[in-house]
């Protein structure tokens, strides 16, 4: 876990090979569902976004409306970026078929109902 965090901190939010940017995201946890918010500025419509659920992760692939250049900053290698891509690991299993998503003002919201069976425990 520590190495995962360290890796995330030192790794830039780009993939040079895939020519894509890694979006910022946050996961909020409620009683029945996880709510995943992904910041996707410069994505024009929901039709430009693909959301795939695969076991314990969500895969986001989105097309940026106009290619983004980071000027002469060497780590961006002078190339343009025209996609967002992220594989986001989920902390608990979710119901894939009941998952819903919406896109507003550059933010993708994905509501993932938790796959949990509840057992009432009798207090003696």
């Amino acid at each position: 876990m520590i190495s995962e965090v360290e890796e995330a901190m030192t790794k830039p939010l780009i993939s040079f090979e895939r020519r894509c940017l890694t979006p910022l995201y946050e996961i909020r946890d409620s009683e029945d569902e996880l709510i995943l918010y992904v910041d996707l500025p410069k994505v024009r419509s929901k039709d430009d976004i693909s959301v795939t659920l695969a076991e314990d992760k969500v895969i986001i692939d989105a097309k940026i409306s106009s290619p983004i250049s980071f000027g002469d900053i060497p780590i961006y290698s002078g190339q343009n970026y025209n996609r967002y891509y992220a594989e986001i690991r989920l902390p608990v299993p979710v119901e894939a078929k009941k998952t819903r998503a919406s896109y507003r003002r550059g933010i993708l919201e994905i509501r993932l109902p938790k796959k949990i069976k509840r057992y009432k425990v009798r207090i003696e």
Binding site: M9, P12, L13, L21, L24, K42, I68, F70, G106
Partner: peptide
Amino acid sequence: QEEEIRVKLRELMKRTIE
């Protein structure tokens, strides 16, 4: 420039959250 700024300041946001 809102969207452009949001894209370009992602790295600084990440460091700031930490």
